[in-house]
Design a protein around this nucleic acid. Structure first.
Length: 580
RNA sequence: GGCCUCGUAGCUCAGCAGGAUAGAGCGACCGCCUCCUAAGCGGUAGGCCACAGGUUCGAAUCCUGUCGAGGCCGCCA
C-alpha cells in the first residue's frame, strides 16, 4: 500500500538473496537505508541510497553493490528501468501500471488509505491546554489546544489508544485570587463601588459571574468576612470558569476525554504516596539550595527545605518539594499528578506545555523516570509563543490587566477552521505570528482557502459529472482504465499522492502535525497545477464530453485527491468544503 | 552565570532518523479566463542555509565553540 515501504522490503529481500548467493558479505543486511521520491526529476521516480549505506557498513564498493542490486531490480515486472548515478544511488522508473494502481488503492481504501498501525494499541496519555481556571482561554492557549488535538487525531489514526486530559490547577493561591476577584464583581452587582487591588483578575468575564452570585445569594455575603464566603465563591467561580473554558474548546472543535483536578489529587493522599516512593529510591532529603546564579532575588537567605534529588536524573539542580514552613511547594502536587498518571498504566505520557514552562521539563522528566523506573516514555512538547499582530503591531498581553486577545475573539473573527489551520502551520518549537488582519482577509495569504479551494473544485467536478448522468460512486469509479492516465502530468501528480502514507508515518513518529498541513498544501498545489494544464492540453481535462472512459479516469484521479485532502483536513480537525 | 528553543531568499517559513543542482508562499517584474470554479496557473529575479571548527566518501541536517533573538531559573502558581 505504501509504495516506498514496498520497494524497501523488496530491496531488503534482494540483499538477503545476494548474501545467500555469496555475492555480498553477511553483514550487508539489516541497515536502514532510504527509499524516497528524489527532488530532482532527472533522478528517476524513486531513488534509494541502499548501496551507499550497505557499502559503508561492509567496506565494499558502492558501485559494485549497486550493480548487483540493479541487476535484480531490472527483472522486476513493475519496474520499467533502473539506473545507477552519482556515488552509487539507484534510481528507478516504475511502470505506469504501478502508479495507476495507486489510484485504485486510494479509492478502494478511502479513508483507510495511508493507515499504518504504528501505535499497536499503546496507551498514550495526552495532556494539553491545562490552563489555570481563572479566565477564558486566549490565543496562546489556542495553539496548544489545536496542536494537542491534532496530535491526538494523528496518533489515533496511527493505532494509538489516546486519552486527552486536562489538568485543572484548582489547588493553589491563584484560585483564591479568582474567588476574591469574583467577590468584587459580586459586590459590584450589589450596587457597590469597587476598586481592584494589584493582584486581582480584572477581566470583564467575571462580571457575569458576580451577577449570577447575586442572583443566587442576594446580598447575603456583602458585609461578611472572607472566611464566610471564600470557599463558596472559589468553588462557584472555578466551575463557571471551567464551563467557559470547555465552551471555548468546543468552539475550536476540541473535546477532552477527562479533566483531572489538582484538588482531587491532593485530597486522595497521592502526594504522600508519591513522595514515599521517591524516598524509597533515596531521592528525598533535607538540605539547603545554592542561591540562583545571575540575578540574586531580594531577601534571599539560605533555608533548609525538603528536596528532590532530581540531579540524579539529569536535572540541573535539586528541586524543593516543601517550603521552609513545611507546606508543599507547587512542585509537590505536580509530582503526585504524574505519579497518578504513571500508576494509571499508560505506555507513553505526552505533555503539551507553553514555552514559559520550559524550566519544568527536566524536573518532570526526572520525576517520571524515577517513578516509572524509566519504563514509561515521557515526552514534553513545548509550544512556543504566539505573537498576535494587528495593524503591524505586536499586541502585548497581560492576564492581570485583562487585555489579552481571547481565543473567542479569534474564532468570532475567522472561525475555527482558519484558526486551527493557521496555528498548525508552524512546528511547535517555532514562534508563530497570528496576523489578525491577514487571517481575516480570507485571501490567498490564507493557505487554508487554497487547500479548501482544491477540495471544492474536486467536489464540483464530481457533481457536474453526476448531473450529466454519470455514476460517480466510488464503486463505479474503480472501473477506470489506467491507460487514460499515462501523460507525464498524470504520473507526476500520482507520485505526489503516493507519498501520503509516508507523510502520515513521519508526522506520527515525529509528533508533528504540521507536516500534514504542508503536504496538503503541496497536494492542493499539484492539483491546481494539473487542473490548469487541462487548459492547454485537452487530454488532461477531466470532464470530456463524448469520452466517458477518459472522464471516468479523470474523475478517479480527482476523487482520490479529494479523499486524501478530505482525510488530511479531517485529521487536523478542519472541515473540508464542498463548494466555495 | 546556567538551562531550553530558534537563526535558511527582501518578508513569513518548510526541509534536518546525513545524500545528488537547498524549496514554498508573500512582496517585485512578465504572461494566461470564447473551454471542468482565475479564491487558480506559468515564467523571471532573489542564497557564503548566522559564523568558525570537527565527524564523514558526502553536512542546511550530527558534534563542539562563538555571536544574535526569545523563554525560564528556591520559600508564586
Amino acid at each position: 500500500m505504501d509504495i516506498f515501504s514496498e520497494i524497501k522490503s523488496l530491496i531488503e529481500a534482494m540483499i538477503l538473496d545476494l548474501i545467500s548467493e555469496g555475492a555480498m558479505p553477511g553483514d550487508a543486511a539489516g541497515h536502514n537505508f532510504s527509499v524516497e521520491r528524489p527532488k530532482n526529476n532527472d533522478h528517476g521516480e524513486i531513488s534509494t541510497n541502499a548501496s551507499l549505506i550497505v557499502a559503508g557498513k561492509s567496506k565494499s564498493s558502492p558501485r559494485k553493490i549497486a550493480e548487483l542490486l540493479a541487476e535484480k531490480l531490472r527483472d522486476h515486472e513493475r519496474i520499467e528501468s533502473v539506473s545507477i548515478a552519482g556515488p552509487g544511488f539507484i534510481n528507478l522508473v516504475l511502470t505506469p501500471d504501478y502508479w495507476q494502481s495507486i489510484i485504485g488503492d486510494i479509492i478502494n481504501l478511502a479513508n483507510e488509505y495511508g493507515r499504518k498501525d504504528i501505535g499497536k494499541g499503546q496507551k498514550v496519555n495526552l495532556e494539553f491546554v491545562s490552563a489555570n481556571p481563572t479566565g477564558p482561554l486566549h490565543v496562546g492557549h489556542a495553539r496548544g489546544a489545536v496542536y494537542g488535538d491534532a496530535l491526538g487525531r494523528l496518533l489515533e489514526f496511527s493505532g494509538y489508544d489516546v486519552t486527552r486530559e486536562y489538568y485543572v490547577n484548582d489547588g493553589g493561591a491563584q484560585v483564591d485570587t479568582l474567588a476574591r476577584s469574583t467577590y468584587l464583581r459580586y459586590l459590584q452587582a450589589n450596587g457597590m463601588e469597587i476598586s481592584f487591588g494589584p493582584d486581582s483578575y480584572q477581566g470583564n468575564y467575571l462580571v457575569d459571574i458576580g451577577e449570577k452570585l447575586k442572583d443566587k445569594f442576594g446580598n447575603r455575603f456583602v458585609d461578611k468576612p472572607e472566611m464566610a464566603w471564600l470557599e463558596t465563591f472559589r468553588q462557584f467561580s472555578i466551575s463557571e470558569m471551567l464551563k467557559l473554558i470547555k465552551n471555548d474548546l468546543l468552539s475550536l472543535n476540541v473535546v477532552m476525554d477527562q479533566y483531572i483536578h489538582e484538588k482531587s489529587i491532593v485530597e486522595t493522599a497521592r502526594i504522600d504516596e508519591a513522595i514515599e516512593q521517591l524516598r524509597e529510591k533515596g531521592l528525598i532529603y533535607w538540605g539547603v539550595l545554592e542561591p540562583p546564579k545571575g540575578k540574586m532575588p531580594e531577601n534571599w537567605e539560605a533555608r533548609e527545605q525538603m528536596l528532590l534529588k532530581s540531579t540524579a536524573y539529569g536535572d540541573d539542580v535539586d528541586r524543593p518539594i516543601k517550603k521552609s514552613d513545611g507546606s508543599w511547594t507547587y512542585f509537590a502536587p505536580d509530582i503526585a499528578y504524574h505519579y497518578d498518571k504513571v500508576s494509571r498504566g499508560y505506555d507513553e505520557l505526552i505533555n503539551v506545555f507553553g514555552a514559559d514552562h520550559g524550566g519544568y521539563v527536566k524536573r518532570l522528566t526526572a520525576v517520571v523516570d524515577a517513578l516509572s523506573g524509566s519504563k514509561v516514555s515521557f515526552v514534553i512538547k513545548l509550544i512556543q509563543m504566539v505573537n498576535v499582530i494587528s495593524e503591524d503591531q505586536v499586541l502585548k498581553m497581560s492576564k492581570r490587566a485583562g487585555n489579552f486577545v481571547l481565543l473567542r475573539e479569534a474564532i468570532d473573527a475567522v472561525g475555527s477552521d482558519v484558526t486551527r489551520f493557521v496555528m498548525l502551520m508552524r512546528k511547535n518549537d517555532a514562534n508563530l505570528d497570528f496576523n489578525f488582519d491577514k487571517v481575516r482577509e480570507q485571501s490567498r495569504d490564507n493557505p487554508v482557502f487554497y487547500v479548501q479551494y482544491a477540495h471544492a473544485r474536486i467536489c464540483s467536478l464530481l457533481k457536474r459529472a453526476k448531473e450529466s448522468g454519470m455514476d460517480t460512486r466510488d464503486q463505479a469509479l474503480l472501473d477506470f482504465d489506467g491507460k487514460h492516465l499515462r501523460e507525464p502530468e498524470h504520473i507526476f501528480f500520482i507520485r505526489k499522492l503516493a507519498e501520503w502514507p509516508r507523510i502520515i508515518e513521519q508526522a506520527t513518529s515525529h509528533r508533528e502535525p504540521h507536516r500534514i498541513i504542508f503536504y496538503l498544501i503541496e497536494v492542493a498545489s499539484g492539483f491546481h497545477s494539473f487542473w490548469s494544464s487541462g487548459r492547454e492540453k485537452d487530454s488532461l481535462r477531466i470532464l470530456q464530453e463524448g469520452k466517458p472512459e477518459m472522464t471516468l479516469a479523470g474523475l478517479a484521479l480527482a476523487r482520490s485527491t479529494g479523499i486524501i485532502i478530505g482525510q488530511g483536513l479531517e485529521m487536523m480537525g478542519v472541515k473540508p468544503l464542498t463548494e466555495m
